[in-house]
Computed example of a mutant assay.
Amino acid sequence: MAAPSSSGAAATAAVDEFLAQVPSTPQELAENKRRMENGELYFAFTPDLVADRRRCALACHLFNQAPRDAPRRELVALWKQLIRDDTPLPPPAGTPEEDEALFADQPWVELPLRADYGFNVVLKEGVYVNASSTWIDTLPITIGARTLIGPNCSFYSGGHPLHGKVRNGIRGPEFGKPIVVGEDCWLGGNVIVLPGVTIGAGSTVGAGSVVTKDVPPGVVVVGNPARVIRVVE
């Protein structure tokens, strides 16, 4: 086996040095955030990231406490607060029915839900998310337009090292891989999607499936791990 290059050894040494202690200075925190956003090992229990998760937890609580008969305007405003989207809502329409129609293309998210950061959850127009969804949005989780998501579905874009001593509980590093679900998909109830997975447009994931690897467009997958059982003509 060839000896590692000096640049490779230097890079490994830099990672080892970074992982030797939890970041604390502004420069270290900025580097930690950069590593998180680039899918590299990073520390999740730094003050800035803990504050981000606490903000999201409060936003989730407010969303989940909304009245069952709350108007769409209120629910959309709470959702935008959760995902940290400050785009203003359109001015109120003349009647309640006309006002509801203003939000026809907005994602429809049933409560309750749970998310880590919120701002990494990207739902395109016409997406429907049934109750009790979970979003571990270490990195972006993007759901394509008109996709339907059943109850109790979970999206895990975060992961941990396999070696226990490296993992080291809340003092150890984590990593993230983005999740992408294409347009016009349907995920049945209790589906779990793991880090780094892409589900192709128009595909269906059977209830209770665990999606561990990419799914082609236009197929039906079921099982744990999910496997293709049918191609949709």
Rank of each mutant, 00 (worst) to 15 (best):
Q106E: 15
L75V: 11
P90R: 03
E98N: 04
G172I: 02
Y156A: 04
T134S: 14
L139V: 05
W186Q: 09
C185V: 04
C185A: 05
G94E: 15
N120R: 11
F155Q: 00
G144R: 03
E74P: 00
S133W: 14
W79Q: 05
P91E: 06
N152E: 11
P92F: 06
V121Q: 05
V76I: 11
A101H: 04
E174F: 13
R146K: 10
G94S: 14
V129L: 15
P91I: 05
A77D: 14
A131S: 12
F175E: 03
Q81S: 08
P92H: 11
E110I: 00
T142Y: 06
V129H: 15
K177D: 09
T95A: 08
N130D: 15
V122M: 10
D86S: 12
G169T: 13
G189V: 02
V109R: 10
A101P: 00
V127C: 03
G176N: 02
V122Q: 12
I141S: 12
L78N: 03
T87R: 12
R167K: 10
P112Y: 10
R114N: 11
P178T: 03
K177I: 04
N152R: 05
K124E: 14
A104Q: 15
N168I: 01
H160A: 06
A104Y: 14
Y156V: 09
N120A: 03
I179E: 02
W79I: 02
E183A: 13
I149F: 04
I170V: 01
E110W: 04
K165V: 04
V127N: 03
E74S: 09
G182K: 01
F119K: 01
G118Q: 08
E183P: 03
T138H: 07
C153V: 11
G189Q: 02
K124V: 09
E98T: 07
I83V: 15
W79G: 01
G159T: 04
N152Y: 07
E174Q: 15
P161Y: 00
L111S: 15
E110N: 05
P173V: 02
G144E: 07
W79R: 08
V122P: 09
T134N: 13
P107Y: 00
P96S: 14
T147D: 01
F155G: 06
I143H: 09
L162W: 00
N130A: 13
N168F: 08
L102I: 08
L139A: 00
I136Y: 12
P151V: 10
E97S: 14
N120I: 01
P178H: 05
F103N: 05
H160Q: 11
P178Q: 05
Q81C: 02
I149Q: 07
S133H: 10
L111Q: 15
R171A: 01
Y156I: 06
G144L: 06
G176R: 07
G172C: 04
T142K: 04
T147R: 01
P112E: 12
L111D: 13
N120C: 06
